[in-house]
Design a protein around this nucleic acid. Structure first.
Lengths: 229, 229
DNA sequence: TGCCAGGATATTGGATCCAATCTATCACCC
DNA sequence: GGGTGATAGATTGGATCCAATATCCTGGCA
């Protein structure tokens, strides 16, 4: 058996439609870490990963370097990499970054949002209503947020925002795995969308900041209690 | 002669006091790109870099991967990497990110700032007054800002803020190379420091946002004009 | 004369091999 | 019996080698 059954399945399902092997390994590993298939703290042995992917150690090494730069893996020279740990402090950190980036993205995007964008956001809210699977839920939530930010015309800002949305989702899945349920925030989503439809930038920015802050607060409360005892 | 004289000098001066060769190459290359020693768009040939550093191609490859993840180099499969280009759009992007991150960092840091921190910030302002070298100037400016954010207790947020502060400084050096002078903003620095001393979080955040916005605006005006003609 | 095809060349991507270093275990000394 | 040091094993870091791919130049053809 490979190191990690879940990862092996992910690799088997994944279409290596990437241009280079390194890209393929990086994308698959990132997905595995973000989705929780590989638990925080898991050692990432190059040899094992290479075997799982059916490649040599080299693309694995390059992929791990990129994951390190994205804070998804921690490197210790001559000791190897481990999947980034989860902590209340880091969760609060990610929350603070989101609270800074997302209102800015929304403010820049709002004037350019089309009726079609807003309709799609509404549809995503509706889909979330009936969704129980945390993976699908996170995906829908991410798409909802990014739909609202899409017209900001700032690729770097959007990439950073999405990166930290994904990081937050990783924490959320972790919370789900422990608690068995997901905190819902559909009312906040609806209020946010309404403010966007009204074109009220100040209200929308305030709502998204509060919305992100709420999620971060619940998360740190959960993680703080977990770390304390 | 090596590919790039400036880089060769940087390598010669650099102390390889890093634990691995890859770290050494990455740090030196990053410094070279950020300081403008290697111009935007310059191809980063692995073989040439390896020779310049006196190492094999492998640590160079890993270093380039990390630079890519930090948006300092652009990869094109089978075609190599080039130093990230400079553009008005990207400058505005970086400015928007700074305008989001830095007020948040300051707000979190402000309650924890000590008198010593504020005195050091004041000293850095004084040093900037008499500084003509753009490299030193950027360094002092970066330290001034980071001193004010240091007590935020959010490592990821601070790392992101510093990263984009450095990216902005790269743009500023580029502007200096073309214009021959640096736009000063010492009045804004002093006003910002005064607000921090007064403990007025709202004012301080507003000032830092305006300050960053000003710089970004000047930059995009310069780059926009340059791209137009 | 301009365009397309094909091959030569340069450069990167990936695999294998060797060296450096960290960890764990075990013996030995205090 | 506990702690320290040496040694062996495992694992990563770095170098070299080979394969794949992109680019560029040249020659033929319309």
């Amino acid at each position: 058996m490979a190191v990690n059954d879940g990862l092996a399945r992910l690799v088997a399902r994944a279409q290596p439609r990437h241009r280079t092997t390194t890209e393929f390994v990086e994308a698959t590993l990132r997905e595995a870490i973000l989705s929780g298939v590989i638990a925080p703290g898991t050692p990432l042995r190059q040899e094992d990963l290479a075997e799982t992917f059916g490649v040599s150690r080299m693309p694995v090494r390059e992929a791990l370097r990129q994951l390190e730069a994205r804070a998804l893996a921690e490197f210790h020279p001559h000791r190897g990499a481990v999947v980034a740990e989860i902590s209340a402090a880091d969760g609060a950190d990610i929350g603070a970054i989101r609270m800074a980036l997302e209102p800015m993205a929304l403010r820049l995007s709002l004037p350019g949002l089309t009726a079609a964008d807003l309709d799609q956001a509404e549809e995503l809210i509706a889909e979330m209503d009936g969704e129980a699977d945390p993976g699908r839920m996170g995906e829908l939530n991410r798409r909802f947020h990014m739909t609202l930010y899409a017209r900001a015309g700032r690729p770097r800002l959007l990439a950073l925002a999405e990166q930290h949305l994904l990081a937050a989702d990783r924490y959320l899945r972790f919370q789900f795995a422990a608690l068995g349920y997901l905190p819902r925030s559909q009312d906040e989503h609806r209020a946010l969308l309404a403010a966007c439809r009204a074109g009220d930038a100040d209200a929308a920015c305030r709502l998204v900041e509060e919305h992100v802050g709420q999620a971060a607060e619940q998360l740190t409360a959960f993680l703080g209690a977990r770390e304390a005892g």
